[in-house]
Amino acid sequence: MRLDYPPNVRIVNVPCTGRVDMLHLLKAIENGADGVYVAGCHEGECHFQNGNLKAKRRVAAVKEILKEVGLEPERVEMFHVAASDGPGFAAAAREMTERIRRLGPSPVRGAAEEDPLWEGGGAEAMST
């Protein structure tokens, strides 16, 4: 389909979003990612029964932790995109990038680590 999506999104492949651990999301934030989102299958369509629902609950738990440490919970998100839905994947990437751009760079990156080329929206996506 040769669809465009924002180049700042770095994709980490997982066999199923059920493999995504809270630590994967937290480590990305800890190491300076401006946002992390998980792109899993639609609810009820998990090949492994409920991996996407597990991921959804873990994303919710990480949002709570971010709230507790004073970071915007919107920096992590769960999207449901079918494996064959290229336009949906690109739309999720755009939505997350726009959201991160609004929120600004992650305050977890110290001044010394600040990227002078930041244009808004360095996000990591975990996708099946």
Partner: peptide, 14 residues
């Protein structure tokens, strides 16, 4: 998880 949360909070606080 707790170690990561503490590091995030304190990095954010500078």
């Amino acid at each position: 998880i707790l170690a990561s949360a503490l590091r995030i909070a304190r990095k954010k606080a500078g």
